Amino acid sequence: MTAQRICSLGELVQDEARRFEVDGVAMAVVLDSNGEVHAIGDTCTHGDISLSEGFVDGDTVECWAHGSAFSLRTGKPLNLPAYEPVPVFQVTIDGDDVLVDPAVKLALN
């Protein structure tokens, strides 16, 4: 599978998550306060809640339902009740286009 265009940089709002679905994979895409774009699995591993409806703070997104925060860089939960990570997908910026390949999950520590 190859990376697919999901939006332009101009369509993302800084420090807000936006939901996209690519080849049946739901992801939350975030333009953080440093200008970096992240793509993580959109479903909280604790409560099956959309993370794109959560709150972005720095390089984390917090699930609105139960308060679990996840690292946008690693997908790891930073607090309970979630204890399983969400997938993190490779993001490529090509000019103004944001490209994501849902088959490329980054293995970060």
Rank of each mutant, 00 (worst) to 15 (best):
M1P: 07
T2N: 15
T2K: 15
A3S: 15
A3T: 12
R5P: 05
R5D: 02
I6H: 09
S8C: 09
G10K: 15
E11Q: 13
E11Y: 09
E11T: 13
E11R: 08
L12I: 09
L12D: 08
V13E: 10
Q14K: 14
Q14H: 00
E16D: 04
E16L: 12
E16Q: 13
A17G: 15
A17N: 09
A17C: 05
R19F: 00
D23R: 14
D23M: 10
G24A: 02
G24V: 04
A26M: 09
M27Y: 11
A28S: 13
A28E: 03
V29G: 10
V30F: 13
V30C: 12
S33L: 10
E36I: 07
H38G: 07
A39W: 09
A39G: 04
I40W: 12
G41A: 06
G41N: 03
T43V: 11
T43K: 05
C44M: 01
T45C: 01
T45G: 04
H46I: 00
I49N: 07
S50W: 05
L51D: 05
S52I: 13
E53T: 12
E53Y: 08
G54M: 02
F55H: 03
D57C: 13
G58A: 01
D59P: 13
D59S: 14
E62H: 05
W64D: 07
A65L: 07
A65R: 04
H66V: 03
H66Q: 00
G67T: 04
G67L: 07
S68K: 06
A69Q: 05
F70P: 02
L72T: 15
L72N: 03
R73W: 07
R73T: 01
K76M: 01
P77L: 03
N79R: 07
P81S: 05
P81C: 00
P81D: 01
A82I: 00
A82R: 09
E84C: 05
P85A: 01
P85C: 00
P87T: 02
P87W: 00
V88W: 02
V88P: 00
V88H: 07
F89S: 09
V91K: 11
V91C: 11
V91R: 14
T92K: 15
I93V: 14
I93E: 02
D96E: 15
L99K: 15
V100Q: 11
V100Y: 03
D101T: 10
P102N: 12
P102M: 13
P102I: 06
P102A: 13
V104G: 11
V104I: 15
V104W: 11
K105Q: 11
L106Y: 05
A107D: 05
A107L: 12
A107C: 07
L108T: 05
L108E: 08
